[in-house]
Simulated assay, not measured.
Amino acid sequence: MTKTPGQFEPPKPITKAEREARKAFRQVDAGKAMTEHETAQKAFSANRERLKAERLAREAAGPPVSAKKAKTKKAK
């Protein structure tokens, strides 16, 4: 039997074994996602702390060297 365009075919019911397998895979995927998220957060935090330390060291070293001052035109 062929389907005509627009004809809806109801989904097949899921067996108990398929439900349990999907549940197990979801748990593994969720754990993997949480681990990746934690790793990314730790890397972000470490980078932020490194940049903060560099900024504080620059500020403690003294005022920044200013660029050449722009010459102003004298009014005659």
Rank of each mutant, 00 (worst) to 15 (best):
I14V: 15
E49N: 12
A53I: 12
V65L: 04
R50W: 10
I14L: 10
E54D: 09
Q27V: 03
A70R: 06
E20Y: 02
G6A: 05
T15Y: 01
P13F: 03
A61L: 09
E9S: 05
T35R: 14
V28D: 04
F44M: 11
M1G: 05
L56M: 15
N47Y: 08
K52W: 04
S45Y: 03
S66T: 05
K3P: 00
R48D: 10
T39Q: 14
P5S: 04
A17Y: 01
G6N: 02
A53F: 03
E18A: 09
S66C: 03
E36L: 14
I14E: 01
E9D: 07
G62S: 02
A46R: 13
K32E: 08
P5C: 04
T35D: 11
E18L: 05
F44L: 12
E49F: 10
Q27A: 06
A75E: 13
T4V: 11
R58T: 06
A40V: 11
S66L: 08
K16E: 12
P13K: 07
P63I: 08
R19E: 08
E54Y: 02
K76P: 04
T35A: 15
T35Q: 12
R55T: 11
F44H: 07
T15S: 12
T35W: 11
F25D: 00
E59S: 05
K52R: 15
A57I: 06
P63G: 06
K23W: 02
Q27P: 00
R48H: 06
T39R: 15
A67E: 04
K32T: 10
E20P: 00
A61Q: 08
K74R: 14
A21S: 06
K71F: 04
A75S: 13
P11R: 11
A33K: 12
A75M: 11
K76G: 12
R50L: 14
L56E: 15
A61E: 10
E54M: 11
I14T: 13
E9H: 01
